[in-house]
Amino acid sequence: MGISERKERERAEREQRIIVAARMLAERDGWASVTVRRLAQEIEYSQPVLYAHFENRDAIVGAVALEGFAELGPALRASVARDATPAEAIEAVATAYLEFAFERPALYEAMFVLPSGLRFAKSDTPQVLRDGFGAMMAVVEPFCADPEIATESFWAALHGLAELERHGRIRAAFRGERVKYIVSIFANVS
């Protein structure tokens, strides 16, 4: 291995340490605690080293969000049983999406709430974002003529439910009933 390969490997390792530390701090203390200064202390590098990897905090949040999308897409796809009916598939994805939001609140916040610099629905949208959207569209598509619009609406409904429940605005005990209601709406879309 040459010097340039070693330096690139070390750079990638430092970048991953920053991402892991940001995610850990956010999960433990919330995103308000994740600052460049605090991350530098956490991983024992200077702030300029962090800035050499990430332009700003939003870029760090974006890197964490990308990891989240790399986890979300496969989780949504894995939630659908091989022999599931279309209605069962859409319900499984809706349930898996909400479980993801509640089991990984800091990660979900990075993905869908905080400024991250990520661009959705654009020509330069990262593939992992497209994959997550594709996992949702795969279960919505059997029910509609315009699967992109329907998937955006399905996603918006799930995100709204997640955020309202995460912040105690709706009753958590009725999550299953809300999922069934959402499924009934989308399973009857034309």
Rank of each mutant, 00 (worst) to 15 (best):
E141R: 15
S123T: 10
N188S: 13
D146K: 05
A32D: 10
V61Y: 06
S4E: 11
A84N: 09
R9D: 06
T35A: 09
Y51S: 06
G134M: 03
A121P: 00
A26H: 01
V113D: 14
E42Q: 15
R82N: 13
S79I: 00
A92N: 03
R178H: 12
D131P: 00
I90Y: 07
C144N: 01
V183F: 13
A150W: 01
R57M: 05
C144Q: 04
G73F: 00
A156Y: 12
P105F: 02
A70S: 15
K7L: 12
E148D: 11
Q41P: 03
A101C: 09
S4V: 05
V139P: 13
L164Q: 12
M111E: 08
E55N: 01
A21D: 09
V20I: 12
V113P: 03
F69G: 09
L76M: 10
V183G: 12
R104K: 14
E141H: 03
A96L: 06
F54A: 11
P105K: 02
A173H: 04
E163M: 06
L50N: 08
C144Y: 00
L107F: 03
Y181K: 12
D124P: 07
A22W: 00
T85L: 11
L114W: 07
E55T: 08
R17K: 13
A162T: 00
R169Y: 04
D83M: 04
F133S: 03
E5A: 15
R9Y: 03
E165P: 10
I90T: 10
A75R: 15
M111T: 02
S153D: 07
V64M: 05
G30R: 04
T85N: 07
R9E: 13
E88Q: 15
H159E: 14
A87E: 14
I19S: 05
A40M: 10
V80D: 08
S190P: 15
H53V: 03
V113Q: 13
E148A: 11
A12S: 12
E67D: 09
D29G: 05
E177T: 12
I182L: 14
Q41K: 13
D131I: 02
A75V: 07
A89C: 10
R104Y: 09
I60N: 12
E44R: 15
A87T: 12
E27C: 01
E67S: 05
E177W: 09
C144A: 08
E165A: 10
L66F: 03
M137S: 11
A187Q: 02
W31Q: 07
S184R: 09
R14W: 04
A157L: 15
L158P: 10
P74K: 05
F143N: 10
R28V: 11
L161K: 00
V61I: 07
N188Q: 10
P105V: 02
